[in-house]
Design a protein around this nucleic acid. Structure first.
Length: 426
DNA sequence: TCTGGGGTCCTAGGACCC
DNA sequence: TCTGGGGTCCTAGGACCC
């Protein structure tokens, strides 16, 4: 039996965070709009109108403050409760088109359409696009091709030219070569700045040239990952859809402070809270972990004494009990803390994670799953789930918490909080 | 004053063992 | 004195993604 040619679609929400905000603020439809990172630090999502002003992803908010009035720019603090909820709605809409759906990120999904008897993929893509927009209010772009990498590429074409109305199909495209020639290497999924520079030195500037590279050579240049990518550009599908949601292998919780921190006690509060958050995520995915790492750092942009350090430790038996980790984290923090610096950021990383199904039996040390620690953790998770995050929290997280991040432009939680539902004016 | 946060995979090189 | 060679495991660093 011949291998069936595969068909993938990549559906990508346009300026996703901005589009989420606009669903509830239709008055901002044609205006320059941006969404800020934590601490209102940098732009993480920019509308087309904002990009047209040469203000894109990564621009520090303070650098454009003087332009806000002049161009009628609207900025929002990031509102992940809203974006997560909108994302789930988009994904549910996409599920109507295929059971083979990979949620690739908060604003992107791959659909495998192999086997669907469709005479016109362009039309099918338009149908997907129109449906998602109708059901959720979020505009999307659709790229269709025979591999995931080419579907990504088709998606950038769909976004680039207005005439395609947000959908581009590369399956059996008569100008396949020209399309690939129009894509510069850094735009290719899997080629970042470093590899793009490296390839440029050998005269490789676009996707077509890359697809023509010799296997051995490209593997030497970009490892096995790059070779796989090149094969995908040639239309040979090497990256399958990932349908299973795999548990995280690392869980990080870290944040910049709303204002610089100098004393250990406040750092401890922050680290306690980040650890709490990370271990909550660990429990959510039914895992236990052995390892925790703590780090602190000063602000590298400031002209002043710099310090950064980290330390990690291993638990004797794996756990998902917050105090087990907080105790060690604070001990390590004390060890790496040096007085006299302005700290800007702290964080923890939990690693060496296993499923609770594989928790080792230890005759001499009590297992987290078997003792009262689990009961306590489950109880506080249920309370916090019902009454809101941090309803129950450790005393070590502090009460004052003046180091917490700034979110001065926060939009209401339109979809996730009863008190903040949008009001229809009559 | 003000510059994000959270992930994955691959490889080279060192430590250690036989 | 001569100082081998193969295997595994671990980690740090580099690359990428959203």
């Amino acid at each position: 039996m011949l291998a069936q040619n595969k068909v993938f679609a990549l559906v990508d929400c346009n300026s996703f965070y901005v589009s989420c905000e606009r669903v509830f603020r239709p008055d901002l439809a044609q205006k320059p709009v941006g969404v800020l990172s934590n601490n209102d630090g940098i732009i993480v999502a920019a509308s087309a109108e904002l990009k047209a002003l040469h203000i894109g992803r990564g621009t520090p908010a303070f650098k454009i403050k003087h332009l806000l009035k002049k161009y009628d720019i609207h900025l929002f603090s990031s509102n992940y409760a809203l974006y997560g909820d909108m994302s789930a709605r988009v994904m549910r809409s996409l599920e109507k088109f295929t059971p083979n759906l990979e949620v690739y990120s908060i604003d992107e999904a791959f659909l495998e359409l192999t086997g669907i008897n469709c005479p016109n993929w362009q039309q099918y893509g338009q149908k997907i696009k129109a449906s998602v927009e109708k059901w959720t209010g979020i505009p999307v772009s659709v790229g269709i091709a025979s591999t995931k990498t080419l579907a990504k590429l088709a998606n950038t074409v769909a976004k680039r030219y207005k005439k395609f109305n947000g959908v581009f199909n590369l399956v059996a495209h008569p100008k396949f070569k020209q399309v690939l020639q129009s894509i510069p290497t850094p735009k290719i999924w899997g080629i970042g700045r470093r590899y793009a520079e490296k390839l440029q030195r050998y005269g490789i500037h676009d996707a077509w040239q890359l697809s023509q590279c010799e296997d051995k050579w490209i593997e030497k240049m970009t490892t096995i990952t790059g070779l796989r990518l090149v094969k995908e550009l040639r239309g040979i599908s090497c990256i399958d859809l990932e349908l299973d949601i795999m548990p995280r292998k690392n869980i990080v919780s870290s944040k910049s402070f709303g204002k610089l921190v100098t004393d250990l006690s406040k750092l401890k509060h922050a680290v306690s809270q980040y650890t709490t958050r990370a271990v909550e995520k660990l429990r959510q995915q039914n895992s236990l972990a052995y390892q925790i790492m703590v780090f602190i750092q000063t602000n590298r942009f400031r002209q002043e004494a710099q310090y950064a350090n980290y330390r990690s430790a291993r638990l004797e038996t794996p756990s998902a009990y917050t105090p087990d980790f907080v105790k060690i984290a604070n001990k390590m923090l004390t060890e790496i803390f040096r007085p006299g610096y302005n700290y800007q950021k702290a964080g923890v990383m939990i690693s060496d994670i296993i499923s609770h199904k594989y928790a080792p039996l230890d005759l001499f040390a009590p297992c987290y799953l078997d003792d009262e620690r689990k009961t306590l953790a489950d109880f506080s998770d249920r309370i916090n789930d019902k009454f809101g995050r941090d309803t129950i929290q450790l005393a070590s997280s502090g009460v004052e918490q003046d180091w917490k991040m700034r979110r001065e432009q926060l939009s209401p939680r339109y979809t996730t909080c009863w008190n903040e539902l949008p009001v229809v004016q009559s």
